[in-house]
Design a protein around this nucleic acid. Structure first.
Length: 1191
RNA sequence: GCUCGGAUGGUGGAAUUGGUAGACACGUUGGACUUAAAAUCCAAUGAUCAGCAACGGUCGUGCGGGUUCAAGUCCCGCUCCGAGUACCA
């Protein structure tokens, strides 16, 4: 009876499915255990051998826990919204849902044949409306919440409204937008509903805001920071630019401190926690204000109280109060009416208006224009609010209403400070380019500080706020640096410096982020001519701009302390700015001193003589007392942008009334994705959902409907949100859904969640360290705050499995470079022929060279000396001469003789390209098979070294379809079986370590399983060959076998608990080898052994288990218990060392004491021989361990 | 630059609180079985020196030091590789 793994595995996979062996119950007497894998995105390429690594590890653990008597939840599902399906849809028109469905089917087949113990009855798919209904619902909960800083948790918005109406917002400490104005209860109560909604939006945990986002033009969408790698998109590697857009954001910054602090509560790897800490980026320090000097009217003012921020932007300068919200510029008394009119006018623009609008909205302008926008009592054609520029087009009617228009212009200009530009219809029609050029010209002049916009008003109270982690070094400040993008730059620059500053600002604006990162070394900057006042010494401090200061971090401005910060130091040296040393006994002549602890501050007024920590405390106290600053903790973590301009994602359950977002009620969810004809953005640049025919919300019928026609009543039909949610929306809560996957009334029932709590063991790749894992923790904490779940962390223990790398194979081609013969002129025809020839031979196409040939001929040897060098030279002539002759012949044919030459073939140009690894065995390429199976190579010629094989070169790379190095688990399963695949993947090495896939060792694991099978089938003392019958003895086992078994139980149990799966495979091998040589045939030994192996190789275990006479699956058989008594030894083989070098071993009873051991060792003839008559100076004896004689 | 990992035979990798370095497997070599191949089984296998022989000698865990009776393991100083992150004030 031999081991037919294919039959066995199919049989048991069917059995498990039919009997629902691994279905977890939500009510059980047993203790629960939740083992989770990061669910996969079902890509078109299917699984490769790297994917199952983590699944196998978690499956072993889950099966082990079942044997240990736990009620195990081990579910699986699909993260099925995502970009690839959408891009495939764009290319082919195939609906992403169909592609996704097909891919899932394939994934499922592949997963099933590996024999995982998943409870598939709980499967979730993020793209399933029954699932994303609840993603939408959670979004609504976030919208309906604000963060109370005092209670340090999220609370319902209703509570906030209550607070506002009873006491205003002065005492409300909330995490909110920075531009919130204070209002009293009476003011709040007098606000219109729309105004209230505007204000509340600034407090909600998910909110609409115009944010600068990472825009990827090629993908047509925004990307989160963690989706960008080295300045290009993670998917596709396309460039990413900064762009302002109105987007949904998640106020994750409210949770920054809790997300950081609670890392201490979870069992994750230190490196992973560290990257989360870095991402959150806490720095403790102070905000300090520096008044700007050339405006004598400025006075330091205390920081506004009563609001709390966790992040800072460049807006954190003293701002004049702005009417809230900024873009509601219409007269509030008639705002509703104006808005409706404006909306109507927007729908029916004149041809001229439309033409100009297409120009003004163009992405080339850095500013945003609004069209048909209400200002005061008027609706203006176009307005740029930030620059206070109005553009109007005078149509026919205006000619007859000149007086009224003039009055209107006067009011807008004089009273409200707008600049009004007017063009006629003809001007626009005739030359829209010229019109927009004029507008840009005016815009530019406004930005240079000559405008009459908001900037003028700000000038009155100017000061620069900086964030610093070292306020204790404030007396070392010798200059300040602003980011070139800092908004005060234009205002403070003196006329003398204006040209330089503007040139610098423009130059750095042109440099992409990437360039700026690339040359960190270059120091650049310009003096603005302005000075700020030092808060304590009151001395003037020069203000510079420099691009080493980032606009996006802190306030976009720094107080430069050259003695304490290397960048400031370098900057000061470069521009000859004085450096003041404020550290006692520290030499800063060579570089800055960044040390903290133990540093004593000197030459610093009231800080002199204080140690770092004391100085820090003292200076913050002083800053706060004088109102010139305050202690401040700053986080790098930004709010997360939550809108994507994509089709294949969750639709927001949002419609807009007068531009204000409204949530669709829970009972009408899910809001399903509409069908569209194409998956591209619209011509107007709207997201793909803009193409949906029916994408309006009818608040009467609560249905998705077609847009209202012009003559229809439209007060109950509103446009729906066109963006969709990002990929991480659905994955930020899915583990809760598994607990109660079919619940139609709740995202998870309270009972189910209380029973399963959270994930006990989570296994997945480390690439999600700062994305998925951070967002999931954020949502969990939010749900906890709102009492929707009772756990604060989603994943108790987390293990990152290392990546399995592919071993790519390369085949090589060669090429020649032509050269022009000096002194010979070519006609243009000849030049063309030359170019064609050059192109042809730069790479010699379709001819491939064995890797050993390329190595041999790659470099020339002028005087071949060794045998090898001579052989190479011969080979070189043999291979290269025909090609050179061919090229020369062609030069002749083209009539280029004498003009173009093959100058030198060295260094030989070689090219390599990936070749599919399935045609490669070791380094040998099966060229015949390649030719037949890959069209690309059908006419290719493969040149090999005489009778040798055609060789490729190999290199370890990430496994990917484009690198042709993907190894498919299906083939392994077919050839060796799933049990072998499972054990081999574990045997490769430590789980968390990255390792290249190499099938070389798989036969070892496979033959182990065959040996295991034989162990149960070969009768003891049987000498006969051929088919063996199954037989076991019921008689007691030998002491030796018991020892082997219990040794194995001990080791394997420890290994599973510590996730050292690779060593337990070795342990099994040792065990089976030992039992085989012991000819063990006893049920007492072999039955427990089977349970030990079952988590690793479940199919073979089930099969033999059944043969042993069991009717039930092995999956819940109790795990064998280790018993010390079988391992107790009476003797120990002592290693005996001389001066620490092991010389021989001696077997002695374990109960011997030190003296007895010493006596026995000293009497041994080998000891006498080693000592050669000397007496050891010292004898070290550790009973049970070692003997060491020191001479 | 910073943070976190890592470096052990021809290869993947073992090695408890410091206590016989190289488990287990691959590969290689030799042998058995076979008409042959596959499969299976047996033996050898860190390097090196010596030898008729062996419980022979020496050197060996990236490099240089140190602590210790004893160091792959602990300490100090480096080198290289990998991952993450980056003018973060």
């Amino acid at each position: 009876m031999s081991y037919h793994f294919n039959e066995i595995e199919e049989k048991w996979q069917k059995y498990w499915a039919k009997n629902q062996t691994f279905k977890a119950s939500n009510s059980s007497e047993k203790e629960k255990f939740y083992v989770l894998d990061m669910f996969p995105y079902p890509s078109g390429a299917g699984l490769h051998v790297g994917h199952p690594l983590g699944y196998i590890a978690s499956d072993i653990y889950a099966r082990y826990k079942r044997h240990k008597g736990f009620n195990v939840l081990h579910p699986q599902g699909y993260d099925s919204f995502g970009l690839p399906a959408e891009q495939y849809a764009i290319q082919t028109g195939q609906h992403p849902a169909l592609t996704t469905e097909e891919n899932i089917k394939r994934y499922r087949e592949q997963l099933d044949q590996i024999g995982f113990s998943f409870d598939w009855s709980r499967e979730v798919r993020t793209s399933d409306p029954n699932y994303y209904k609840w993603t939408q619902w959670i979004f609504i909960q976030l919208f309906d919440s604000w963060y109370d800083v005092e209670a340090d948790k999220a609370r319902p918005v209703a509570d906030l409204e209550e607070l506002f109406s009873s006491e205003g917002n002065a005492n409300v400490k909330a995490v909110c937008d920075e531009d919130v104005q204070s209002f009293s209860a009476a003011q709040w109560n007098s606000f219109s509903s729309e105004e209230k909604q505007h204000i509340l939006l600034k407090y909600r945990l998910t909110y609409l805001a115009e944010t600068e986002v990472n825009w990827c033009p090629q993908l047509g969408t925004v990307l989160a920071n963690d989706e960008i790698v080295n300045g290009v998109s993670e998917r596709g590697g396309y460039p990413v630019v900064r762009k302002k857009m109105t987007q949904w954001s998640m106020r994750i910054s409210a949770y920054a401190e809790r997300l950081r602090a609670d890392l201490d509560k979870i069992d994750w790897s230190e490196s992973l926690k560290e990257s989360q800490r870095n991402w959150i980026g806490k720095s403790v320090g102070a905000m300090v204000k520096f008044p700007i000097l050339n405006n004598p009217s400025s006075h330091p003012q205390p920081f506004p109280e009563g609001r709390e921020q966790n992040s800072l932007t460049s807006k954190e300068v003293q701002e004049t109060p702005e009417k809230s919200p900024g873009y509601l510029t219409g007269n509030p008394n008639i705002s509703g009416e104006l808005l409706n009119r404006a909306k109507e006018m927007r729908k029916n623009p004149t041809a001229e208006e439309e033409i100009l609008w297409q120009r003004l909205r163009s992405k080339k302008l850095d500013v945003k224009f609004r069209r048909q926008h209400p200002i005061d009592n008027y609706i203006v054609d176009f307005v740029c609010l930030s620059k206070k520029l109005i553009v109007e087009i005078d149509g026919e009617i205006h000619k007859f209403k000149k007086e009224a228009d003039d009055q209107r212009q006067l009011k807008l200009e004089a009273k409200l400070g707008y600049r009004v530009l007017r063009f006629t219809n003809e001007e626009v029609l005739r030359d829209v380019k010229e019109v927009s050029r004029k507008i840009i010209e005016v815009l530019d002049s406004l930005s240079a500080g000559e405008g009459r916009g908001e900037d003028d008003i700000q000038k009155e109270t100017k000061s620069i706020s900086v964030f610093t982690t070292r306020p204790d070094t404030i007396f070392g400040v010798t200059f300040m640096t602003l980011a070139p993008e800092h908004e005060l730059v234009a205002q403070i620059t003196t006329p003398e410096q204006k040209a330089d500053v503007e040139a610098y600002v423009q130059a750095s604006a042109k440099r992409s982020e990437r360039e700026r990162m690339a040359d960190v070394k270059t120091i650049s900057g310009v003096f603005t001519g302005a000075y700020a006042e030092h808060p304590f010494t009151k001395e003037p401090v020069p203000i510079w701009i420099g691009d080493y200061v980032l606009a996006g971090y802190g306030t976009g401005a720094v107080m430069a302390v050259p003695c304490g910060d290397q960048r400031d130091y370098d900057f000061a040296k470069h521009f000859n700015i004085p450096i003041k040393n404020i550290f006692q006994d520290v030499d800063i002549s060579e570089e800055a001193f960044a040390g903290k602890e133990g540093t004593v501050i000197a030459d610093s007024d009231f800080l002199s003589g204080l140690e770092y920590k004391e100085a820090l405390k003292r200076v913050i106290l002083e800053l706060e007392r004088t109102g010139q600053g305050k202690g401040k903790t700053n986080y790098r973590l930004r709010d997360a942008v939550f809108s994507r301009q994509r089709y294949w994602g969750e639709p927001f359950p949002v419609y807009y009334v007068n531009g204000l977002p409204q949530m669709i009620a829970k009972e009408h969810l899910p809001l399903r994705l509409p069908d569209v004809e194409k998956y591209l953005p619209t011509e107007e640049g709207e997201p793909p959902l803009g193409r949906a025919k029916d994408w309006f919300w009818n608040t009467k019928t609560n249905e998705v409907v077609a847009p209202p026609s012009n003559n229809e009543e439209e007060d109950h039909i509103f446009p729906l949100e066109l963006n969709t949610m990002p990929g991480w929306a659905g994955s930020s809560w899915y583990w809760f859904r598994y607990m109660d996957a079919h619940n139609e009334n709740e995202f998870v029932s309270e009972d189910a969640q209380k029973y399963w709590e959270n994930v006990d063991l989570y296994i997945g790749g480390s690439e999600h360290a700062t994305g998925h894992l951070l967002y999931s923790r954020f949502w969990t904490k939010f749900l906890y705050d709102r009492k929707l779940v009772n756990v604060e962390e989603p994943f108790k223990k987390l293990i990152n499995q290392g990546m399995i790398l592919g071993e790519s194979a390369f085949i090589k081609r060669i090429g020649f470079r032509l050269a022009q013969n000096h002194g010979e002129k070519m006609s243009s025809d000849e030049k063309e022929s030359y170019r064609i020839l050059q192109e042809k031979y730069e790479i010699i196409k379709n001819i491939y060279f064995s890797s050993d040939i390329v190595d041999a001929i790659k470099s020339p040897t002028s005087n071949p000396e060794t045998e090898e060098e001579r052989a190479n030279a011969t080979l070189r002539d043999e291979i290269l001469l025909p090609f050179i002759q061919k090229v020369q012949a062609e030069i002749k044919d083209c009539g280029l003789e004498g003009k173009a030459i093959v100058p030198s073939i060295f260094p030989l140009i070689t090219y390599r390209s990936h070749v599919p690894v399935q045609f490669v065995n070791g380094n040998k390429l099966d060229t015949d098979k390649l030719k037949i199976e890959d069209n690309q190579y059908f006419h290719a010629e493969f040149i090999r070294n005489s009778d040798r094989d055609f060789l490729v070169s190999r290199e370890v790379e990430k496994m990917s379809k484009s690198k042709y190095n993907v190894v498919n688990p299906d083939e392994i399963c077919k050839q060796y079986g799933a049990d072998t695949l499972r054990m081999y993947e574990m045997f490769l090495g430590p789980l968390e370590q990255a390792k290249p896939w190499n099938t070389a060792g798989i036969t070892g694991v496979h033959s182990f399983l065959k040996k295991l099978w034989k162990l149960y089938h070969s009768p003891s003392n049987s000498q006969e060959g051929g088919e063996r019958e199954f037989s076991l003895l019921e008689a007691p086992a030998s002491a030796e076998s018991r020892k082997t078994l219990h040794k194995t139980i001990k080791k394997v149990t420890e290994d599973i608990e510590t996730f050292s799966f690779n060593t337990s495979v070795s342990t099994f091998m040792i065990c089976v080898n030992e039992l085989t040589s012991q000819k063990c045939n006893s049920r007492e030994i072999l039955e427990p052994l089977l349970i030990l192996i079952a988590p690793y190789a479940p199919h073979i275990a089930e099969e033999i288990w059944e043969k042993l006479g069991h009717k039930e699956s092995i999956s819940t058989a109790p795990f064998p218990v280790f018993e010390e008594k079988y391992l107790v030894e009476s003797t120990k083989l002592y290693p005996v060392s001389f001066n620490g070098k092991m010389r021989f071993t001696i077997e002695l009873p374990l109960d011997m004491d030190k003296d007895q051991i010493e006596k026995a060792v000293m009497e041994d003839e080998r000891t006498i021989k080693q000592l050669e008559g000397r007496t050891p100076k010292k004898v070290i004896i550790v009973p049970g361990k070692i003997v060491n004689l020191v001479g």
